[in-house]
Simulated scan of single mutants.
Amino acid sequence: MTSSNELKTKTESRPVALVTGGRQGIGLAIVTRLAAAGFDIAFTARSSSDKCTEIIAQCETLGARAKYISSDLGDVSSHQTLVEQVVCWGGGLDCLVNNAGVGTLVRGDLLDLTTESFDHVIGVNLRGTLFLSQAVARWMLDNPSDHYRSIISVSSVSALMVSPERADYCMSKAALAMMTKSFALRFAADNIGVFELRPGIIQTGMTEAVSGKYDKRIADGLVPARRWGIPDDIGRALLPFAVGDMAFASGSAIELDGGLSINRL
């Protein structure tokens, strides 16, 4: 799916961002924030919908070009093609936002965790994210840019906070923390910033099924800020990392959770 302006020649150089899972929730908030900040945006989802056309139009009203690309993050063999599609369309690739991810297939006792659920979650959240980041980083190293470069992974407070009923999910996010530090060290001298954002309880379609449960727990003080997070809390927080304002903090992780993960007595 393409927009009418995607064949136009750019009048000025604009940074290009790739946002995985950018059709809804946190990903959509990131797409619109980056578009407003001067990025052209390629965003992925596993399947197209009318929503993709609406997002492209919304980005265009913000002065950005946008493109939807069908992609399954768990299919590592498709990553190089995805990078080539973005570069061919956008003319470069300056910011990768690893936002796409999946939850555990079935919540339950850790002793009942299945290899099917573990492989599914790790295959997308860790394996897919790792090797897409690798493909993007290789391209960045081979193709200098006038723009700041960054790789930003939207992880979770579950990188630190344990939920035994979805241990595979927590493990995948904890591993992303080490991936971030590893990539940050590897690319520090190349001025490619690598960061991790850890959202807490965010009001999205993924949390809608448990909203009643968390409404009560938040009201009872689970989240010190006494509110749900919203996708734009993440979108706004990401911008300094994407544009280079936080370049010297490469390797850092930030909790975006209203105080949820702060140790308390």
Rank of each mutant, 00 (worst) to 15 (best):
A225L: 12
S49Y: 07
L82G: 06
G258N: 04
V194W: 00
C59I: 00
T44C: 00
F248L: 09
A177Q: 13
E165W: 12
V97A: 08
L73I: 05
N125H: 03
I122L: 13
Q203W: 06
I69D: 01
S211I: 07
T61S: 14
N263A: 14
S133W: 11
V97H: 12
V83W: 02
E255V: 02
V162P: 02
L111C: 12
R23W: 03
I41K: 11
S71L: 00
M171N: 11
A247G: 01
L222S: 01
A249T: 11
A225M: 06
V162N: 13
Q203D: 15
D94M: 03
L96C: 03
L7V: 00
S153C: 10
A17F: 08
S13E: 14
G21P: 02
G244Q: 12
L62W: 14
W228N: 09
E54P: 00
G212E: 06
I218H: 03
A174S: 14
G251R: 11
K181A: 07
L185W: 07
L113A: 10
I151G: 00
S117T: 12
T180D: 11
S163D: 14
V210G: 00
S163W: 15
G74I: 10
Q203M: 11
A167F: 10
E116S: 14
G235T: 11
V83Q: 06
K8E: 13
Q80F: 11
E116L: 10
A36M: 14
F118D: 03
Y214F: 15
S211T: 13
M178V: 12
S252Q: 14
Y68S: 01
S145D: 04
F183Y: 15
S150E: 08
V97Y: 09
D245L: 11
T180R: 07
G91L: 12
R236L: 00
H147A: 04
G92W: 11
R127T: 12
A57E: 14
W89P: 05
F187C: 07
N99H: 08
G200Y: 09
T207M: 12
R149C: 08
S252A: 15
A189P: 01
D215Y: 06
L18Y: 08
G22R: 03
T11Q: 15
T61F: 04
L113D: 10
I230P: 00
G200C: 08
I152N: 04
F39G: 00
V157L: 04
G128H: 03
S47H: 11
I55M: 02
S71E: 05
V154D: 02
I30L: 02
V162S: 15
R138N: 10
